[in-house]
Design a protein around this nucleic acid. Sequence first.
DNA 1: GCGGATCAC
DNA 2: CATGGTGATCCGC
Length: 629
Amino acid sequence: LFRMENGSLPPKTEGFVSRMALNDNKAGMEGLDRDKINKIIMETSKGSKFYENELKREQQVNQRIEMMLQKEQITEQQLKKAQAQVERMVAELEESRDLTRAIVHVDMDAFYAAVEMRDCPELKDKPMAVGSMSMLSTSNYLARKYGVRAAMPGFIAKKLCPHLVIVPTNFDKYRAVSNEIREIFTDYDPGFMPVSLDEAYLDFTEHVEKRQSWPESLRTRRYRASTTTTGEESGKLAQEAAPGTPDLSPVLFEDSPSSSSNSEDAGDAFEIFGTSVEEAVREMRFRIEQKTMLTASAGIAPNMMLAKVCSDKNKPNGQYRLPPTREAVMEFVCDLPVRKVSGVGKVSEKLLSALGISSCSHLGQKMALLSLLFSETSWHHFLQVSLGLGSAFIPRHEERKSMSTERTFKEMSAVEEQLSLCHELCEDLANDLKKEGLKGKTVTLKLKNVNFEVKTRALTLPYPVATADEIFTVAKDLLKTERDNESPQPLRLRLMGVRVSAFVSSDHKKPLQRSIVGFLNSGRGESGSSQRAKQQHLKENSQLSSSSQIWPLGCQRARAKRLQLQAAAASTTQQAGLGTSPPPVSGKTDASGRCPDGGSPALVCPICLLSQDDDDLGMFNRHVDLCLN
DNA sequence: GCGGATCAC
DNA sequence: CATGGTGATCCGC
């Protein structure tokens, strides 16, 4: 039935690798010659191993679409039932719609490129990108006019724009700038959520409330705050960007006539901001620009999903506020291309497109069908998007779940070489793990061969590992297994990676305790928002039903960990400073986990309460972790 | 728990 | 000459 209406695949993707086509999703790509650019991309790529692999993956997606369209043997009956279910859920979701929060998404404009341009004036009027001939991280707006964009290899970018200047990445510098802008974020929302070095979500609600009663003096911001100039270079740069250059806000000259007389110094120039959200966000962007000489864009909306889309709307150096009314939200969402929504990538876009869905209103119209073709989590997400719903609170920063390191290199087939590389990766990873005091039970080896085919091989141990040797022991086994698997052909690799996950709650610090507290008052701050935030959090978190079990388990874990720690302290130093320690798990053991009645030196596990024969602390810890699992 | 895939930046 | 690295999540076993 459905196929009759929409029986064809998107027309232009025939014999065309849509995976590789120019991504005009990003800002700054208006009015350029897509066809010409795509032609150059294709001609440059054709015949490469990379291209062949992309073709293959494209085929897989096409197959998936075929399967999906097959499943469309859906009866009118089923569709009706699904529609009823959808409508029930819509009503429920509508009930929970929260328009009371002012969520802001901030995003630095062409971040890495902007930093490099700031620090090297020669680059200002040239098309440039940050990265290497193999891969670009980002490009400036001049380069984007040629179709040069993030995630494009430099050598292709050079074909699109022969005069392109490619600057190598300076992560330390970007990190430093990132810290500067995060200091500013803190003033508006101490619980802001960083997405990456240049991007963050903030909840402005409470700031704006307070701001209502602020006098002008607290909302007055000076141009070119003096404290950040650190050396002669930035001093020189400050001059370069002095009045007259288009880099400064035009506002300096249009709105502040009183200061124009001493604008050469600009030291007395200032601006007063209002009390609305928009003014607060404008102020924040102003401070970012004054502090870093870089511009940011921002979106203001009732939830994170919408704020993210809004921040893109007036980029670069602009902001957009979506009014907090249901009507405004629905109108905004109506013509919104699904691809603009965070979480909908190239593949999802293509799958939806095969169903005749390109905008969010289409999404709503075909929701019954989607509920039959996609997984529950997927269509629930689609449904939320179609209603303009998203998280109205900013979740606490979660603890990391994995840590990895990987490297791409020239073809490598020699076993010796591979082993040596693997060991190096394990050492690097162990180093990183040590910095955060992490140990994990699962080790994963990632391999990519010269045909760009990726494989991962994992093994979960009954105990956590952290050192290079421990990880390498596992990783080299996984590598050997894979080698045996492929033999007698050698593994012709172009990438290898090692990952550790399934962390056990790490000792010393107290991340566990923090996360329990976070769970209890999962809203931030102490206002009425916390209740709402908690509700929302629980609603969105499918573990609602198990929350009652998490509690005592968490306590048990925390207690066991404390005992482990104290046992460690007791065994290394013989000090008797444990008088303030918590009560023992049972009458048989004291807090150190040792038997109190003198004689036996054996450790007692606080979980299973069995004496551990081995007096070795490492073995004891391993046992406790085992019990905790 | 595993492995492939998708996604964001 | 040449198509990245890190972390998360989901799905179907």
